[in-house]
């Protein structure tokens, strides 16, 4: 469990980082919470390691009315504590354990693109984007990749060789939007067997599911689920309707996913589970939104 030899680079700024990445066949080291174990187990053997931890200007969390921009070096714990985005905060509490969150980065998790990870689902459900930089013949060139195009496959993002993901943008929620993240993991902090992150707005609802497809599965439920779905009195006729809508939404989510079996869970269980979690997440998000609206 020792990595094979590699050449280590520690660029001091973004330009140096992408210039290095353009010159060598390298992997980017940020938090290292996935890469270092992969190196130690010799599952990855890059000839060059480009450590961006000493690069200036890649950290930071900037919030404005439009949303939150998270820099490549912002740690999970930093973003979690900042409270800059309620859905991000909720999702981050489900990411591994505090010591891992102290090192791991939000952008790193997005680029790692594990289909069972929480943060890709958050980016996907919010319709955020990742800013990607590369060295383009003497200058830093930047492109914005929308979430829908960013997750290409299991452990595969749109970041091409030679590119560096410099930040991620998470659009802000509306004042009356409600959010929730529900998941089932085998142990506290494990990757989820299945998970659902939901956003319910006065106009409609949307979920993104993890662990049930090669990339986060986004399901737009339109106005099937709305803020009334979280109403607290189950005797009212409206709530019976709301409950039926939630069940229909769960069914729609089940149909949209293609879970696979592994040693921890059967495909049938995951499909069942994602529906249960969708119903829970939507109810909770609707309740939160309704509360924000003062309903």
């Amino acid at each position: 469990m020792k990595p094979p030899p590699f050449t280590y680079h520690a660029p001091r700024d973004l330009a140096a980082a992408v210039r290095t990445l353009a010159e060598v066949d390298g992997k980017v080291l940020a938090g290292g919470q996935s890469l270092i174990p992969m190196l130690n187990m010799r599952l990855a053997a890059p000839a060059h390691l480009v450590d961006i931890n000493r690069a200036e200007g890649l950290g930071g969390i900037e919030a404005d009315p439009a949303g939150v921009r998270v820099g490549a070096l912002a740690r999970h714990s930093e973003v979690e504590r900042s409270g800059a985005h309620p859905l991000l905060t909720r999702a981050l509490r489900l990411v591994a354990h505090p010591v891992i969150r102290n090192r791991g980065t939000v952008v790193g998790s997005l680029v790692h693109a594990d289909p069972a990870a929480e943060l890709p689902a958050v980016l996907a459900v919010l319709g955020g984007a990742v800013r990607v930089a590369r060295w383009d013949g003497g200058a830093v060139a930047v492109r914005e990749v929308p979430a829908a195009e960013f997750f290409v496959g299991p452990m595969e993002s749109a970041v091409a060789p030679g590119e560096l993901a410099v930040s991620a943008f998470f659009p802000a929620l509306g004042a009356h939007d409600g959010v929730a993240f529900e998941e089932v993991a085998r142990r506290h902090g494990d990757y989820a067997l299945a998970g659902v992150c939901a956003v319910v707005t006065p106009r409609g609802a949307k979920v993104a599911c993890v662990g049930v497809g090669p990339v986060p599965v986004v399901v737009d439920l339109g106005d099937l689920v709305n803020l009334d779905s979280g109403a607290p009195d189950p005797r009212a006729a409206a709530d019976l309707r709301a409950a039926a809508d939630l069940r229909a939404a769960a069914e729609a989510v089940r149909e949209a996913t293609e879970p696979e079996a592994d040693i921890h869970a059967s495909a049938a269980y995951r499909r069942h589970l994602v529906g249960v979690l969708a119903e829970r997440a939507l109810r909770e998000a609707a309740r939160e939104g309704a509360a924000a609206r003062g309903a």
């Binding site: 089932v184 085998r186 067997l193 921890h264 869970a265 059967s266 049938a268 269980y269 995951r270 069942h272």
Partner: peptide, 8 residues
């Protein structure tokens, strides 16, 4: 016995 086993 895992949750998946119990579900099955």
């Amino acid at each position: 016995l895992s949750p998946s086993d119990l579900f099955d």
